[in-house]
């Protein structure tokens, strides 16, 4: 596409493993979504979103291990920066998915502009990071 893999890793501040987990979970989610939309698998939206939430928890676990290793081998500052960045990214994506799920499930009547607000913040932050990385 527009970016090489190393540029993507640098820009997003994620490892390739995290990107891979996101890709696989998105694939599973779209399969579940299709089954739900076709009325083949009538389950709640929380079940459909389960691969995405699992992806967040797996990435959270992975990041915590990386942060501990960074703290031990490269010091507090590097570890804190990594924790802040990965935590922010994971939190924003998680909030978006949770709001979307609540809206689809009918638990809350939230406008789409509010649901997408974490994504707006995410892209602002990514743009700032792109300026820093370049």
């Amino acid at each position: 596409m527009l970016f090489t893999l190393s540029e993507t890793v640098q820009w997003l501040g994620m490892t390739v493993f995290e990107l891979w987990v996101h890709t696989v979970s998105l694939l599973l989610f779209t399969v579940f979504l299709t089954l739900k939309l076709q009325d083949v698998w009538p389950v709640t939206w929380w079940t459909i979103f389960a691969p995405l939430f699992t992806c967040d928890s797996l990435n959270g676990y992975f990041v915590s291990i990386v942060v501990i290793r960074l703290y031990l081998y490269q010091g507090f500052r590097v570890a804190a920066l990594r924790l802040f960045w990965s935590g922010l990214l994971l939190a924003l994506i998680f909030v978006f998915k949770m709001l979307l799920c609540k809206r689809l499930e009918g638990e809350a009547d939230i406008p789409c502009s509010i649901i997408m607000s974490p994504l707006f913040v995410l892209f602002q932050v990514l743009m700032i990071r792109a300026c820093q990385v370049s």
């Binding site: 527009l2 970016f3 540029e7 820009w11 892209f123 990514l126 743009m127 792109a130 990385v133 370049s134």
Partner: peptide, 11 residues
């Protein structure tokens, strides 16, 4: 294109 230009277009 530089990385920042490509990132700006994407953004």
């Amino acid at each position: 294109m530089a990385l920042v230009q490509r990132a700006s277009l994407t953004y």
